[in-house]
Design a protein around this nucleic acid. Structure first.
Lengths: 203, 203
DNA sequence: AGCAAAATGAACAGATCGGTTTAATAACTT
DNA sequence: AAGTTATTAAACCGATCTGTTCATTTTGCT
């Protein structure tokens, strides 16, 4: 029983919440959907919100693991370095967008449904964003870009914007569009290149 | 009674839904919050979903009007042209982000809570995105940029990404970060400038 | 086989959900 | 001032909400 019942419960709940939303998913429906009695669910979690927090924790771990690994694998394929890994983020996103079950960013939905910044669910979403930013910043620094903090935040904006575009308009090209933009940004801040197009940034 | 009771109802509902979310806002609470009897609300709208669709319609109109006007006002201030208006989008967003009541994109929240693409609420959100894209494309074309459709989609990604960043991390710099990125993109595609940094786009 | 822990279905509780009804009041119109 | 129209509060409807209770069955361990 290594993949404990608890883990299985969280994993399946993750899917249902992602597809249906949080408030829109009642515990009876959830119970039926994941094939586990409501009694059992409440034996593992005190409240629905506790479960949701765990769901977000799992999604945080799974998403960051998946994305960073995919960036590494795709980015280092042709002897690529940090720069290629950064760009590969959008190739990985493209794969995600084209999955049948893609339904936008779960963390963004969580902040939308629990807008109080002090709410544990909202905080969990913020925490995810912060942790990914730290990891992305490390990679940006390895790529020897000028203003690494700025570039990191910009890449995050491109990532989240692409996710939004893919969600609301299910725009097939969102990841590629963002990739070109990222390329432009990275080249502009590449220390190994000549002067960037725009040098008048006021920092 | 020009600002008809109906309009007032929609306008106030817009605020409550924006702050609380759709499913999380019950009709009793909504009634109390906007100071109008539930009987009256249901005299104007057959269902809650009908009301939400109207709310999104109003927000579509208000948001596009506000943003495009603000882009024009801010962008043409110092004899600026279309290019400055495009960049001013992020200055306008910055103002929005710093409003006390800023709580992210209502359309994105709508698609998150009503994920069925055929749902009238979801469709209304898509319609908004499409209409704004058309208007932004017109401005991009006026700015004489190469690959105007691509640049338009990229600017939209930056806009939505900045909104997301401002919402989840309440990152104060999101609009400015996106602005710098937009500057980079626009300069790269400016036909009046020399060769862009990156010329190997495969189109 | 036998025991303890875990999981089950189903009923239940109290609150709230979206939505309706009703009878009384307030507000326009002429 | 009369009469139509809009608005109100409050009770009410059945369904669903989160969460609990309980008696029964299934499971894992030794």
């Amino acid at each position: 029983m290594r993949p404990s019942k608890r883990e299985e419960l969280i994993e399946k709940s993750l899917f249902v919440f992602d597809q249906n939303g949080f408030h829109a998913t009642g515990m009876d429906l959830l119970s039926a959907e994941i094939g586990m009695s409501k009694t059992s669910i409440y034996n593992h979690f005190r409240t629905k919100e506790d479960l949701i927090v765990e769901v977000l924790r799992l999604q945080d771990e799974q998403f960051r693991n998946w994305l960073l690994r995919r960036m590494y694998d795709l980015g280092t394929a042709n002897h690529g370095g940090p720069r290629e890994q950064l760009l590969a983020m959008f190739d990985a996103l493209d794969e995600w967008f084209n999955h049948d079950n893609f339904n936008g960013c779960l963390f963004l939905k969580a902040t939308g449904e629990y807008s109080d910044h002090d709410h544990p669910i909202h905080r969990q979403a913020i925490e995810h964003a912060e942790m990914f930013e730290i990891q992305l910043l490390a990679l940006v620094k390895k790529a020897s870009l000028r203003l690494p903090e700025l570039v990191t935040r910009q890449l995050l904006i491109l990532k989240d914007g692409a996710i939004s575009a893919a969600q609301v308009g299910h725009i097939k090209s969102a990841a590629k569009d963002a990739r070109y933009a990222a390329q432009c940004l990275i080249d502009t801040h590449d220390t190994s290149k000549r002067k960037p197009v725009q040098t008048s940034f006021a920092f």
